[in-house]
């Protein structure tokens, strides 16, 4: 930003520094007072791990994932990417404007995690996050079915988010201890954001369950629609065996007890029961997806694929 200190003739007394853009100064035309540095609009970019940092480390050869770690990062990245794609649809359609912003923040967090994990995974054979997101085919994706489920009404979205955030919180908490420094660093950033997602979804579970008759019926229905896909999240396989042994990751099944306990507490407070529905077999980790993924990818990839090799 091009900024400099300017004196605006409109101010009555002392000159104050104002932000300038190409359009002139943004100033309220009145001088500050009191603790003059107190401001409700002071903005900073913050200081945290960004997807670009991972991409840079990968590009410069500072880090390179093992084959197993790359495959694992692909799973985490695809989960977050597909969910971000789903959540992005709510922006301009949420039940209230404040919730447009809230869901947008969650979508942006998820997209950030996706980009970090995919950038890391892409380091295996010198690709980029976009190569992975836009130029893989459906069976090459590794997302679990839960993340692919349609938004439905707000209750279905909240039910899905409730499961996702409690699952991701347990997962990322443990991955902060990963022997893979990059996975640990991405998880350390992500776990704090996902903690807030837990809070957001829990607040809404309570309000929908204990609000009106209609909202209660809808959240019960939403949880019932989503619950079959909970099982897949906690299934171990050969990859997770190997990674768990190496200390790179943990067995998904080891998260289940804490997930059950913590989601159970919220459901109890909301006077809800864990839906008694059989788990679907899943298969996303092996490239066997729900019917929904094809449509999601068709929309997400259409423009990038129209212009292969183009830069945006």
């Amino acid at each position: 930003m091009n900024s400099e200190s300017v004196t605006t003739p409109e101010t009555y007394t002392e000159a104050h520094a104002a932000e300038t853009t190409g359009h002139g100064d943004i100033s309220v035309g009145v001088a500050g007072s009191g603790d003059s540095s107190a401001s409700a609009t002071r903005i900073t970019p913050g200081n945290a791990l960004r997807p670009e940092d991972i991409a840079l480390e990968v590009r410069t050869g500072l880090v390179k994932p093992s084959e197993d770690a790359a495959e694992y990062a692909l799973r985490l990245g695809d989960d977050a990417l597909i969910l971000a794609q789903r959540l992005g649809h709510w922006i301009s359609r949420a039940p209230e404007l404040e919730e447009d912003v809230a869901l947008g923040n969650i979508a942006l967090d998820q997209l950030g995690h996706a980009r970090s994990f995919l950038s890391y995974a892409a380091g295996l054979d010198e690709k980029s996050e976009d190569d992975l997101a836009y130029f893989r085919r459906e069976h090459e994706f590794r997302s679990a079915h839960l993340f692919e489920q349609p938004n439905g009404d707000f209750a279905v979205t909240i039910a899905r988010q409730f499961v996702v955030s409690y699952y991701q919180f347990e997962l990322y908490s443990r991955l902060t201890q990963s022997t893979d420094a990059t996975l640990a660093a991405i998880s350390a950033k992500a776990v704090k954001e996902v903690d807030y997602h837990r809070d957001h979804s829990a607040q809404w579970i309570l309000r929908l369950a204990l609000g009106t008759e209609e909202s209660r019926a809808r959240i019960i229905h939403g949880l019932k629609l989503i619950w079959p896909y909970v099982g897949e999240l906690f299934v171990d396989d050969e990859l997770t065996h190997r990674l768990a042994e190496a200390g790179t990751a943990v067995e998904p099944s080891s998260l289940k007890a804490d997930f059950d306990r913590l989601t159970g507490e919220i459901l109890t407070e909301a006077e809800l029961e864990v839906p008694q529905v059989p788990f679907a077999p899943g298969g996303g980790r092996r490239g066997k997806h729900s019917e929904h993924l094809g449509y999601i990818l068709a929309e997400m990839q259409v423009l990038a694929r129209e212009h292969p090799g183009a830069s945006w």
Binding site: M1, Y12, S39
Partner: peptide, 29 residues
């Protein structure tokens, strides 16, 4: 932090300039 495509100092510029703009309830002289 800052835009990875430009030197980090430009990100700092946002911060320092932004902090100086008074806003919110400002009492007028």
């Amino acid at each position: 932090h800052g835009n990875p495509e430009v030197p980090a100092s430009s990100a700092g510029a946002v911060e320092s300039s932004a902090a100086k703009v008074p806003a919110g309830p400002v009492s007028e002289p």
